[in-house]
Design a binder for these strands. Structure first.
Lengths: 257, 257
DNA sequence: CGCAGCATTGACCTTCCTCAATAAGAGTGG
DNA sequence: CCACTCTTATTGAGGAAGGTCAATGCTGCG
């Protein structure tokens, strides 16, 4: 439970410099990405927008009182909760197109930390809400995204509360596959994990060592193959699902046939 | 990890009978309860509303495909996720005034189960959304409630991932206090817990025995006092917060001075 | 090529779970 | 009102999963 508290201090939490007028290009990419439920007036949205560049390892410092919604445009990021004195729980990983809600008033101190260099669009929740009051479609978009985030958070709570270490690690790989997986020639899926073993451990409520041992076990069993620090290839999809506790994995099978 | 699977089967999950026209009275109470962000046209809402009576122990059976939002009018309920073969995780407890989002498409099977007899108003999410498209205030209400639920779910994930058994049990009492606590003559707070030890355990990702031991330890230490199965009196608020891991509990103290 | 950080592996220990027995509540019917 | 019974809670002893500590091996970068 002890952790080198100094390592984080060396990369101090900074409130990322904001470039008040969000670049036209970033707004374009935002609207393109959330197209399925298109935002009617990206121009209007533009006025309340601030763009952030978040360098690898740096965090948006979000103490109590800050209340905003972020859009991740490029890069990969983690939403981290700090538990005194030196524990931390990663609540979610985020990739381009994701919306991150950071409401004020939570009991814990949260920060969005860049795993790789990121571009982010940020809104004060109040600003976004006042826009949404006049724009039901924007309001619905926010609502759907929030409910989606709630669903994923519930899945995480279930895993943290009632799953074993092997199940959690298998779950993790399965949840990452559709987001960052690439199918190769032999139809095997390869993941290039942007996060460290520590990140994975902090996300699953485990230790680095336990995560490493589970990777080792699956490697030995021929379920996965790893090369370097970040590459994981899934060799036996069925076995992986069994390890995640998906009994019979009926749903997935049906859709694969 | 073994559990008497038969005990639940005897009280089968039923789709509660719906009384198509929601009673005027229940709608009145709903609008009264969510008054802070009042719904402009409760009459309109009424058309899409179904009222449920959920007897103690019975559940709304919500298999994949169902997608609805529930309002709890009276009683106490738990949102339960079932993890095959016989584990379960309680995601949240609910009390009158609460809104429960039950989106379709989650990976786990969820059910809202009544801890005591409940009255519930239910909406198909699609219906509610189509109403909200024409009504920004309703949309905002939904959005704020969803973000609120997300915040509480994150707190639960943090507790399940990174807190010890004593911390979780203390956390539980602290989280229940503002919702169901009653201050008595000596300004001590008394909780009448509607849920069993099993419910508490399933909510905290622990076993009944561990929860019971933690109650025992706090009783011995003079932090709490219990009488009967459900009554808990908080004697030492400061110590309880310390046990919950709220280091120094600075925020709370300041607001108490 | 060498260094610093990260990942892996092993030995041991703590926490919490499991199994089992006992006790206390809360209904029920006499 | 009390005895009876069923359920739920408490308490104890032992075991397993995962955490902690420590040593070694990669890997990617200057």
């Amino acid at each position: 439970m002890s952790r080198d508290a100094g390592s984080d201090t060396s990369a101090p939490m900074i409130r990322a410099r904001s470039h008040p007028p969000a670049s036209e290009e970033l707004l374009q990419r935002l609207t393109a990405m959330i197209a399925p439920a298109r935002i009617p007036g990206a121009r209007v949205l533009g006025a309340a927008t601030q763009s952030f560049a978040l360098a690898r390892g740096s965090s948006t410092f979000l103490a109590a009182g800050c209340d905003c919604v972020l859009f991740l445009i490029t890069g990969a990021a983690k939403l981290v909760a700090h538990v005194p004195p030196d524990r931390e729980q990663i609540l979610s990983f985020h990739f381009p197109g994701d919306m991150v809600f950071l409401p004020h008033g939570g009991t814990h101190s949260l920060a969005l930390t860049a795993i790789s260099d990121c571009e982010v669009l940020g809104f004060e929740t109040a600003d976004l809400f006042s826009l949404a009051t006049a724009d039901a479609q924007l309001a619905m978009l926010l609502c759907q995204r929030a409910i989606g985030a709630l669903g994923r958070c519930r899945d995480k709570a279930i895993a943290l509360g009632r799953k074993t270490a092997p199940e959690r690690v298998a779950d993790f790989l399965l949840s990452m596959a559709p987001r960052i997986g690439v199918k190769d020639a032999r139809a095997e899926m390869t993941l290039l994990l942007p996060m460290s073993r520590r990140d994975i451990a902090d996300s699953l409520g485990l230790t680095i060592e336990t995560v490493s041992r589970q990777f080792g076990a699956m490697r030995t069993a021929g379920v996965i193959e790893t090369s370097g620090r970040s590459e994981v290839r899934i060799l036996d999809w069925t076995d992986l699902q069994a390890r995640a506790g998906k009994s019979f994995a009926a749903d997935q099978f049906i859709s694969q046939i």
